[in-house]
């Protein structure tokens, strides 16, 4: 894959508590979003009721999941599947449906969390930050 390396999106900030969010005097008028690519800051991982769990040993690195994921939540390394970014993965299950060798299992989020004993926001490598997104290729 010779896709041009894209500039990294702005580093994600931790989700802000309601009182920490900027006030009406500090945001652009008209709800215009003036910062390109700031969707990376938006945590959609906490919408998830099921999470994709990948059996990486059986993965054939076809990258269908990467192409189909509507949230750019599939993380690549050296043009190979690396992990799922659970900060953004909202658990739609499209990757699981599209995987030609059926190695992505959708696991109930509550069960996955109690198994992994984590908050559910960490990515496959335990990173809370969504930074890896967009650096694949």
């Amino acid at each position: 894959m010779k896709a041009k390396q894209k500039a990294a999106p702005p580093a994600a900030t931790k989700a802000l508590a309601p009182q920490e969010k900027p006030g009406w005097t500090d945001i652009p008028i008209g709800a215009v979003v003036v910062e390109a690519g700031n969707g990376v800051n938006y945590q959609t991982g906490d919408w998830r009721s099921e999470r994709p769990v990948v059996d990486v040993d059986k993965c054939i690195h076809c990258l269908f999941c990467w192409v189909f994921c509507p949230d750019n939540a599939v993380v690549l390394h050296n043009e190979k599947f690396k992990s799922i970014n659970y900060y953004h993965c909202k658990g739609c299950g499209i990757c699981s449906a599209e995987c030609p060798v059926k190695v992505i299992t959708m696991v109930e989020e509550a069960k996955a969390q109690s198994n992994a004993n984590d908050s559910g926001a960490a990515d496959g490598d335990g990173n809370l930050s969504p930074k890896a997104v967009g650096k694949g290729g």
Binding site: A31, V33, V34
Partner: peptide, 17 residues
């Protein structure tokens, strides 16, 4: 200078706008 018009602003931002 790309911008987005008409994004979703829910309970966390609508009121401010």
């Amino acid at each position: 200078n790309p911008v987005t018009y008409g994004p979703l602003a829910l309970f966390d931002y609508y009121f401010e706008f």
